[in-house]
Amino acid sequence: MPFRVLLTLLYLTLPSIVLAAGTISGTITDKRGVTVDAVVYIEDSAGEFAPPKEHLVMDQKNLAFTPHIIPILIGTTVDFLNSDDILNNVFTPSWAGHKFNLGTYPKGIVRSFTFDRLGEVVILCNIHPEMEAYIIILSNPFFAVTDKTGKFTISGVPSGRYTLRTWHERLKPQTKQISVRENNTTVVDFELIR
């Protein structure tokens, strides 16, 4: 009975928790203009977060990994699909990815990997050296990737003071101290350099 009460209370308070959350948004630029495919994430959020049950998908199509960048919560499983008519391979030399090699496989085959270490994992194909992608494994779900206009939005961030950090495959990371207040949008822009 006490459990049911607790559950009911949780359901009743959930909307207010969401409402109490704030949003972080902004634009990332570099010397050339807007920065696409930069990851922005909160570095120091307390708490434990369960990874999503649904698998994320990284496809191989026309000799390219898509999407090129995927930030994920630690414990997330990614399915690596080959949609090309030719053989492709998936491997990583990165420690955070256990240096896996999922093999070389034809169209329609999917092989999966669960990422259980924090860090950056570069994904490569050992028969097509031009193919490259990144998976960034993070400790909390408060992250976003910049779109074609360099913009990002992180929603549902609990109120508090945080360190916001960037990651980009070629540009140096930057951090900024920010405050997030309930029902407010905190605007943070970055200008990254090599």
Partner: peptide, 24 residues
């Protein structure tokens, strides 16, 4: 191996990074 016309019904279980189609 793969077909002379490039058909790819084979799967190669890789263990290392050395593997390349054609020599593996």
């Amino acid at each position: 191996g793969i077909g002379l016309d490039g058909t790819t019904d084979v799967e190669i279980e890789d263990e290392g990074l050395l593997n390349q189609v054609g020599l593996t």
